[in-house]
Design a protein around this nucleic acid. Structure first.
Lengths: 224, 224
DNA sequence: CGGCGGTGTTAAGGAAGCGTCAAGACCGGC
DNA sequence: GCCGGTCTTGACGCTTCCTTAACACCGCCG
């Protein structure tokens, strides 16, 4: 769940944000001034910071600089209408984005999504490991006992489909359709050849498969 | 020098941007509609794209999607006041930021700086070394056995893409799109020629590659 | 016991992909 | 306009991969 920290001294805005963000399934924490905000930033380690520039105890750009000293967490700035120079200063200090008050909640949420998306390297953990081998989906890399394993394109595609559905039984028809195309749904012999190839390259004992299991008459299953 | 591409169909805005950006030492190119814009994007390889949503020939979000298909170059969107839903759609399509017309030039420039700064690799290690050669990404210099190696512009771009994704498989389509442009995704023979050039200049034994590995049917991989 | 459907294994031919070389096209500077 | 460097383009031989077929195996049931 995405964690958001809101630093603002106006109670109505704080409440509105807390309610709306919580409703969208964000985890929200708040702080009412710059000092408390910097402390909360270090303590909570949020994924995004929403920062009001008009704080009672310190200038907004100082907060930004304080945060930027040790993390690149995205910062979205709230500023009152007309404070052009402040906004510019905030962006130059390292803010990622800003929204002018009064603002529409939809716009803020869209900017929030954009900021989180930019910061996130990848949506899902792309590496699946077993005791004997590991598969890095994004790098398209397979290592077995420390050494790289070379897979042909077809072998890789087949393994990818199985690994993306761990513990699930994947039917022969689905495998054939996803790897060879929808026109190959009766060529079950392809599967036998390529599953055998994968087992020879990955299984500790290819004749007694431990990870790439056969479900007779149905399909195959990957058990991590 | 930072390169900026402006896609806008209104001549006054185009001129204002050209003058102001050039005065700030940006290198500016322009396009008047989406089609020409996408072509210019591939040709010019700007560091930032400024995109007006109100184009005559296609929807702004389509342009964004066309660009995001092959590069993560920052995109700043210009939109008329009040088009809230358009702005949200643009951000969700992959835009990085937007500015509402009429806009202050200072604000646009600040957002431009922020976008470029965000896109910069930041604290990433700018020099990658192997046992036999080392690549300085920021200085664009390659040394092999103590001596400088001369690379042609195309050779350098190709090497840069591979080195920026160490250990990762980079598909032929991605390499072609990033080095030659999105229109060259079927010219796999270019890759063969230039990978061979790089190997001849960098590999200790070009016929038995140790760092620039080919994965038949899939792409290439740089192993440090 | 002997067929039968589904599966695992292996090998060979052809297709596709790759490395290499070289010649021509292009483009900049002089 | 010439010249050197760079980029395209095509052809050739070689390697890798995909497809296909043949055969052994296993469990099931008549």
């Amino acid at each position: 769940m995405t964690k958001v920290l809101v630093i603002d001294d106006e109670a109505p805005i704080l409440n509105a944000l807390r309610i709306n963000l919580a409703a969208r399934n964000y985890e929200v924490s708040t702080a009412a001034d710059g000092t408390a905000g910097l402390a909360a930033m270090a303590r909570e380690r949020p994924d995004v910071l929403i920062l009001d520039l008009g704080l009672p105890d310190m200038d907004g750009t100082e907060v930004i600089r304080g945060v930027r000293g040790w993390t690149s967490t995205p910062i979205i700035v709230l500023s009152a209408w007309g404070q052009e120079s402040q906004k510019v200063a905030a962006l130059d200090a390292g803010a990622d984005d800003y929204v002018t008050k009064p603002f529409g909640m939809d716009e803020l949420l869209a900017r929030l999504r954009a900021a989180v998306r930019r910061a996130a390297p990848g949506p899902a953990e792309p590496v699946v490991s077993t005791e004997h081998f590991s598969v890095d989906l994004s790098a398209k890399r397979v290592t077995c006992g420390g050494a790289d394993v070379r897979l042909t394109p077809t072998e890789w595609q087949l393994l990818e489909v199985l690994v993306r559905h761990p513990d699930r039984l994947v039917s022969q028809r689905q495998l054939l359709a996803e790897v060879w195309g929808p026109g190959y749904q009766n060529e079950a012999n392809y599967l036998r050849v390529y599953v055998a190839n994968l087992r020879r390259k990955l299984e500790p004992d290819p004749s007694r498969p431990r990870y790439l299991l056969t479900e007779t008459g149905m399909g195959y299953r990957f058990r991590p």
